[in-house]
Computed example of a mutant assay.
Amino acid sequence: MDEIIEIWDESGKPTGTTALKSEAHKNGWFHPTIHLWLYTHAGQVLLQKRAENKDTFPGLWDVSVAGHILNGETPLAGALRETREEIGLLLKANQLEFLGRFTSDQKHPGGIHDREFQYVYLAELPVPLEDLTGNPEEVAALELRSLLRLTEELWGMAAPAGYVPHSRTYYKAVFTALQSRV
C-alpha cells in the first residue's frame, strides 16, 4: 500500500513535507517507521515472515510488527495501528515500552533506497499464537522462536540468511532488552 508519510532530514527532524512512501523510497528520503518486538515470559519472541510480494526483504523473517508511520501520526499510534493491521492484535498504549530510535539506510533492488528512523518498542504477547491473524498482504507466517535460538543465530552476524538484516547495534539493544524481560 502506498501511504502518505512525513519526510525528515538526516538529523531526524520533520521537514514539513510529505510524500508517498514509494516516492520516499525512490528518492532516498528519510522517514519514520515503527518496530514492535513481542515476547513471552517463557523466553519466546514472535517473528513474522514477510510476504513474498513485499518490495523489501520478501520472504525473510523479521521483527514481530514493522511499518511506516503515517503523516500526522505519532510513533506510538503507528505501532498500535500496524499491530492491528498486520497481525490482528489490539494492544493499548500502556502495553508498549519504548526501547529507542535507530537509523537504517539500505538500498534494495528496483531502485529502492530506504532511509528510516525506526522507533522500536517491546511488549509482552498477551494472547496465544493461534489467536493472531497475519494479514496475507503483509505476512506469510507467524512463529514463536526461542530467544536463546535467535541470539545464537543472529548475535554478531546481524544478517544471516533468512532474516532481515539490521545493524549489530540494533540487534544488541533489542536482544539485551528482551533477555532482561524473559
Rank of each mutant, 00 (worst) to 15 (best):
Q95D: 14
Q95T: 07
L96G: 05
L96W: 08
E97L: 14
E97W: 12
F98H: 14
L99R: 10
F102L: 02
F102D: 04
F102Q: 05
F102Y: 13
T103C: 13
D105G: 02
D105H: 09
K107F: 07
K107V: 12
H108W: 11
G110I: 12
I112N: 05
I112P: 00
H113K: 11
R115Y: 03
R115F: 05
E116N: 12
E116D: 14
Q118A: 13
V120Q: 01
V120R: 00
Y121R: 03
L122Q: 09
A123N: 01
A123M: 02
A123Y: 00
A123C: 04
P126W: 04
V127M: 10
P128Y: 03
P128M: 06
P128I: 03
D131P: 06
D131R: 15
D131L: 07
D131N: 15
L132A: 08
G134R: 06
E137I: 03
V139E: 06
L142S: 11
E143I: 11
E143R: 13
E143F: 00
L144G: 08
L144Y: 12
R145K: 14
R145C: 05
S146Y: 14
S146T: 11
S146C: 11
L147N: 04
L147A: 09
L148S: 14
E153T: 12
E153W: 02
L154Y: 03
L154W: 04
L154A: 06
W155C: 10
G156I: 12
G156L: 07
A158G: 03
A158M: 02
G162M: 08
Y163I: 08
Y163T: 00
V164N: 01
V164S: 02
V164H: 06
P165Y: 08
P165N: 02
P165S: 07
H166T: 02
H166I: 06
H166N: 15
